[in-house]
Design a protein around this nucleic acid. Structure first.
Length: 337
DNA sequence: CGGTGTGTTGAA
DNA sequence: TCAACACACCGG
């Protein structure tokens, strides 16, 4: 069936907005300099190139980039702050390199919504891959790579794993790519299983609704919050499927039947996924800072009629439980917490 | 000895 | 939180 989930979100569900903001327009690549020219190493001297006046100063040229600081020898340092403490990212020859390193660290430390120097790519799959890579490693490991100027090499290596260079052409899952113990991305993708439901006939019928078992609904999809106490109209929830497609469902409570339901948008999902009674719908939440919701269908094995419990293979990596669903056809997994 | 990254401070 | 500044310390 479809590949395995890449449990990385593309939309910041909660505090969106402050995606990118740059000093100038939207620079995609290292930007041209300004009116100050740095001199060679060793000298903390700057020249004002605009005027012919040779202004000598001990002051170091400050960077136009966030998180980038000048070094006495003309190189550039990158740093980020976390919990009242500075975290050193490394030193770089070029100001732009330092700025890019800061961006990587910012994404790892603060999530996709982090304010960065450069416009982040919009290519969904590539972003997912990089995000998956980023969060498969500890902050320290990412910092190590940045300090050794090896981050992009490692990232590319991880992508090559994902695209399964070993001849078959078959695309392996990100789970497997990251699970390659020889590569850097050996940690588990952080995606927690919230719950699963075996859909009933009415869930896939004409009612355009999926009943969410009360216990799971109240635990994972709380409806009422302090700001709007009566959420009778429900809310819209976004889910990402294993293909990266975003699904939006209305989620509400039906007083008449005392049940929590996904309504608007559900039938479309049922049709596209060819969901049938007995199939499993699995709900997840990415464990990264973004907390994006994910949805996955697990086709019930048509071979064994009665199999309420699906065999799973569980691995625990870096504190995250990973389940590989062994039921036929799915080839997927579900995380667990 | 050159360079890195920390100590520190004050501004935002 | 952040950058500016000074310099202790570290590896070669």
């Amino acid at each position: 069936m479809d590949g395995d989930i890449i449990c990385i979100d593309e939309l910041s569900s909660t505090s969106d907005s402050n995606v990118i903001q740059l000093p100038l327009k939207s620079l995609q690549l290292p930007t041209p300099p300004r009116s100050l020219c740095r001199l060679g190493s060793g000298a903390s001297v700057i020249l004002d190139c605009e005027g012919s006046v040779e202004a000598e100063s001990r002051k170091l040229p400050s960077s136009k980039y966030k998180g980038v600081v000048p070094q006495p020898n003309g190189r550039w340092g990158a740093q980020i702050y976390e919990k009242h403490q500075r975290v050193w990212i490394g030193t770089f020859n070029e100001e732009d390199e330092a700025a890019m390193a800061y961006d990587v660290a910012a994404k790892r430390f603060r999530g996709r919504g982090a304010v960065t120097n450069f416009k982040q790519r919009s290519d969904t799959e590539d972003c997912d891959l990089e995000a998956a890579f980023l969060y498969s490693q500890s902050k320290e490991e990412i910092l190590d790579m940045l300090r050794k100027h090896a981050y992009y090499d490692e990232l590319e290596q991880s992508k090559r794993n994902y695209f399964n260079a070993n001849g078959s052409g078959k695309r392996v899952s990100m789970m497997e790519a990251m699970g390659d113990p020889s590569g850097p991305g050996r940690a588990a993708m952080a995606c927690h299983l919230l719950f699963q439901k075996e859909v009933t006939q009415s869930d896939v019928g004409k009612l355009n609704r999926l009943v969410i078992p009360k216990q799971h609904a109240e635990k994972h999809f709380p409806l009422r919050n302090h700001t709007s106490p009566s959420t009778s109209k429900g809310v819209l929830l976004n889910f990402i499927d294993s293909g990266g497609k975003v699904w939006r469902f209305r989620y509400s409570y039906w007083n008449s039947s005392h049940s929590y339901v996904l309504t608007r948008g559900w039938t479309r999902f049922v049709k596209e996924k060819s969901l049938r009674a007995g199939d499993i719908v699995s709900f997840h939440r990415s464990a990264g800072p973004e907390k994006q919701l994910h949805i996955k269908c697990i086709r019930r094995s048509r071979l064994s009629r009665a199999g309420p419990v699906h065999p799973v293979q569980m691995v625990r990596l870096f504190g995250v439980d990973i389940f590989k669903v062994l039921a036929a056809g799915s080839g997927g997994y579900s995380g667990g917490g």
